[in-house]
Design a protein around this nucleic acid. Sequence first.
DNA 1: CAGTGGTCTAGACCACAAG
DNA 2: TTGTGGTCTAGACCACTGG
Lengths: 233, 233
Amino acid sequence: MSHNGFNSWQAVQEEVLRRIQTHIWKPGDLIPHEADLSKEFGCARATVNRALRQLAEEGLLDRKRRAGTRVAAQPARKAKLEIPILRTEIEEGGMNYGYALLSCKSKAPPMSVKQRLQSAAGEKHLHVVAIHYANSQPFACEDRWINLKAVPRAESANFEEVSANEWLVNNIPFERGAIVFSAQSASSRIAKRLECDEGAALFTIDRKTMREQSVLTVVQISFAPGYQMHAVL
Amino acid sequence: MSHNGFNSWQAVQEEVLRRIQTHIWKPGDLIPHEADLSKEFGCARATVNRALRQLAEEGLLDRKRRAGTRVAAQPARKAKLEIPILRTEIEEGGMNYGYALLSCKSKAPPMSVKQRLQSAAGEKHLHVVAIHYANSQPFACEDRWINLKAVPRAESANFEEVSANEWLVNNIPFERGAIVFSAQSASSRIAKRLECDEGAALFTIDRKTMREQSVLTVVQISFAPGYQMHAVL
DNA sequence: CAGTGGTCTAGACCACAAG
DNA sequence: TTGTGGTCTAGACCACTGG
């Protein structure tokens, strides 16, 4: 039973995957311990561990100490998304990138965003609105609020040349964040900015970026009609 | 320099992260070799490797054999998405799940989906249309084509009781796939199904599921207006 | 060719949770 | 309490690739 040639974690992983796919191990089943598998496969336990750990991260296995490893009953599909900087995304699509700053003012945010910013009364924030172009066509509209208390350097940044999008990625060491994707009807204001019909269906990203307990920035990016976001399973 | 307390891969990772965030190691910089770091941190090289490997997977480091490890110049934000089964998503939201099959016929697909299915001329496929309800309100509309040659068991499945969405997850072992997210204006047909206004902005998922070289199924899921998809960075 | 990351091994100890 | 996964170690060899 040993020396089966499963001497790399990838090979072990493929074999485990095969047993799941062919229903040798069915959803909900307990599979053998790492120790047994390493004996069967003729490799070290660490190798089996590496293979199973990754499958668990991908949602195909459920692992618990003492309880053992089970085939996930309902494997949640986990997709990986890359959220590039807009300029990069456009240029990688072989198009010319353009950028225009529409507005950049320090002021008190409206109630709706004040809540998302967890901002105290009277605090001022930097409001930046800009358009990103692909081949001179509006590609996306960026509407951003920056917490100046958390990111003081932003006050002296020049968002005429470099978009806030890009500036933040390069200047703020990334921490945590939440993203919400939705479809929105174009308001008359946004329709004008994106040069599209009012009411058009716009793919929209709302992002909140935090460090420790403080909100650094919230942004809404509205893409011109027809935009698609791709992901891989 | 040794015995710094960086004796777990998480601790090493945090320290590396700190050095990146505080610009001790700047974007594009070459950082020390694993061997040096393990000496500095007083741990095994494998521990450093584990920490750095994960950071590389997350896009914060670029690693190449012989060339060494660099801080990523433009760290691509990678978000992880979980794509749940619709029923699960609705029930986890504390709502009652409902389901209605609108249509389930074997026929030749139209040109547009034929291409996505990589289907030969004259081949028949199963076309399934269904609505998923949350608290008796339309939540999402599922329009699916199943390749019967690749998934013959689907022919005898009863999609009256269990949605194709769910049946496939439970019967088709893990596979690869591509997902496209977009915003679409509701057509009159879909508006009727979702009981919303024609032209409303609908969050839409197009998914293609494959095994080996063959396409198993393609599906378009249109969500009722207001739907949001959440992800974590 | 040689330096770097990628991985495997055998053994050990720890942390957690089911019984 | 005890079995299971989670991790660390020290050493070794391999694989890729830049010089």
